[in-house]
């Protein structure tokens, strides 16, 4: 039947959704984000991903900092930790280090991650802490009502850049590739199906996975990173892209102003826990230190 005019029968659709089970990963509280916010798509995606991976609610911990996106843990039915601005990764590292059985998802916005918390990211990445860090990048400070963020485009006018932003935005994908995050991918709020797939892969990855998610701020950015603009600009990685090739990943990340969606890079290497276990192993085998 024709897609545009095919009748949709609600009860069949609801049965399908309920049978699928991902609603169980939502909390009772309605998200307080502005209507239209891309974070709703992230939330929907994470619940789908956790559901598909069969991770039990109680085995997941979502850690966040300060910002609109960091409200996230309140709206999912898992363990959550809403910490201080920019301090997400250290807290999450602590959680993961304490209990390796947990699935730890660290969530933050572009401000929380790359401004105040920017100093923490390279260290979490190079240590390969087995967690997923998702940055919800809307290129703006939403919670403080619309100032520029490290990923705001050049030329954007915000309350703190009334004569247009001149700072070159950070390139998180290239940074994270450079920091040697062991899984680097990108998704977009306007493509909820792909987003959920990428979240699933990121969480399934063993090691520090970094998922960058493009999302419009519908309240404070009406000109730049809007759904309309992103819809026109986003594209998929080429089919023949080899995610094990770091230089190819770098090249892809650098190829477009808005880099493509998909998995840029993936490698397998010991996690922080592996290293700690290894260190412990070596320590046990080493001669006792002198008195």
């Amino acid at each position: 039947m024709n897609e545009h005019v095919k009748p949709v029968y609600l009860e069949e659709k609801l049965d399908e959704i309920r049978a699928d089970g991902h609603l169980a990963y939502r909390s009772k509280s309605l998200p307080t984000w502005c209507p239209g916010c891309g974070y709703f798509a992230m939330q929907e995606g994470l619940t789908i991903a956790l559901n598909r991976l069969g991770i039990r609610n109680e085995d997941a911990v979502v850690v966040s900092g300060i910002g609109c996106s960091s409200r996230f843990p309140f709206f999912v039915n898992t363990y959550g930790f809403h910490t201080l601005h920019g301090r997400t990764l250290p807290v999450a590292t602590g959680v993961k280090t304490a209990n390796d059985a947990l699935t730890v998802v660290a969530i933050g916005g572009d401000g929380d991650g790359f401004a105040i918390g920017g100093g923490h990211i390279p260290h979490a990445a190079r240590r390969n802490v087995d967690m997923t860090y998702m940055v919800f990048d809307n290129g703006i400070y939403g919670l403080t009502k619309g100032q520029t963020s490290p990923t705001t485009a050049v030329g954007f006018r915000s309350k703190t850049t009334p004569y247009a932003n001149e700072d070159q935005p950070l390139h998180p994908l290239m940074m994270l590739l450079a920091y040697r995050a062991s899984w680097v991918g990108q998704a977009y709020a306007g493509r909820p199906h792909h987003l959920a797939d990428m979240m699933e892969q990121a969480i399934a990855h063993r090691g520090f996975s970094y998922l960058h998610i493009l999302s419009p701020c519908v309240t404070f950015d009406k000109t730049d990173r809007t759904y309309a603009n992103l819809n026109m600009q986003v594209q998929d990685l080429p089919d023949d892209h080899d995610p094990t090739d770091l230089m190819a990943a770098m090249a892809q990340a650098a190829a477009h102003e808005i880099p493509a969606l998909g998995l840029f890079y993936r490698e397998e290497r010991p996690t922080l826990t592996d290293v700690m276990n290894d260190t412990a192993e070596r320590a046990r085998n080493a001669p006792a230190p002198a008195e």
């Binding site: 239209g36 891309g38 798509a41 199906h193």
Partner: peptide, 28 residues
């Protein structure tokens, strides 16, 4: 009608609705 598969439940539509015409539903 809303294509539920593509809906992200963001409620942007509910905000602009002139009446109580768009609803969050669990059944029919």
């Amino acid at each position: 009608k809303i294509d539920v598969d593509n809906c992200i439940y963001c409620r942007a539509c509910i905000e602009v609705a002139p009446k109580n015409c768009i609803k969050m539903v669990e059944g029919i």
